[in-house]
């Protein structure tokens, strides 16, 4: 991934198709962790990459292109969550998590696993705590990277991780949330 980042930060080689191949999957998954709704995720993913394309010229290369795309995606998701559209979706779609849970035989087996219960709890965390947990554990970003992406101090990220873990421990007594 580092290699790709270095290649892509060279402005002459920006190519939206290449960006989509590299980051489409992970950005779409990241967006789902915010929206918890596949239909909305589709729309937001499209918006994010259109925005990436439109603003490619303004990308100065101060960060990796991955971080830059992540920041666009996170901001877009937060805008959506603050928007009227989101409130409308919530009113008509009261149980997004249940609806979004895969119903394949494979997933049914997976969800029997106890660790999956933990994951489901992660998705029920408040946004700020969920975001920190997802970016740290799922996207494997460092605390510094998360603080830059979310534009908050590292201590705030640590506090949110701590509070997120505490909340999860309340619902599931055991679990080694090792860093």
């Amino acid at each position: 991934m580092v290699k790709y980042d270095r290649v892509l930060t060279n402005k002459e080689q920006y190519n939206i198709e290449q960006i989509l191949d590299l980051y489409g999957e992970e950005i779409k998954r990241l967006i789902f962790t915010y929206s918890k709704n596949w239909s909305v995720t589709e729309d937001l993913t499209q918006d994010v990459f259109i925005s990436v394309y439109k603003n490619l010229d303004s990308f100065k290369g101060n960060s990796t292109i991955k971080s830059w795309i992540y920041s666009i995606a996170i901001n877009r998701c937060k805008d959506y969550l603050k928007s009227w559209n989101f409130k409308k979706v919530l009113l008509t779609d009261r149980f997004p998590i249940l609806q979004s849970t895969p119903k394949t035989p494979e997933s049914t087996i997976i969800f029997k696993d106890e660790s999956q219960e933990l994951i489901q709890r992660v998705f029920l965390l408040p946004l700020k705590l969920r975001e920190a947990i997802i970016l740290f554990y799922y996207k494997e970003l460092t605390i510094k990277e998360i603080s830059e992406l979310l534009d908050v101090k590292e201590s705030v990220v640590k506090m949110r991780l701590h509070r997120g873990r505490e909340k999860l421990k309340l619902s599931i007594s055991e679990g080694d949330w090792s860093e």
Binding site: E17, E25, T45, V122, Y137
Partner: peptide, 26 residues
């Protein structure tokens, strides 16, 4: 006990066990 890798894998499976960004999306 769960660790970081298991959580990562678990979240991935929870979101979807298969690819979510298809050629159609692209």
């Amino acid at each position: 006990k769960v660790n970081k890798k298991e959580i990562r894998k678990g979240i991935d499976l929870y979101i979807s066990p298969s690819e979510v960004f298809t050629m159609e999306d692209k």
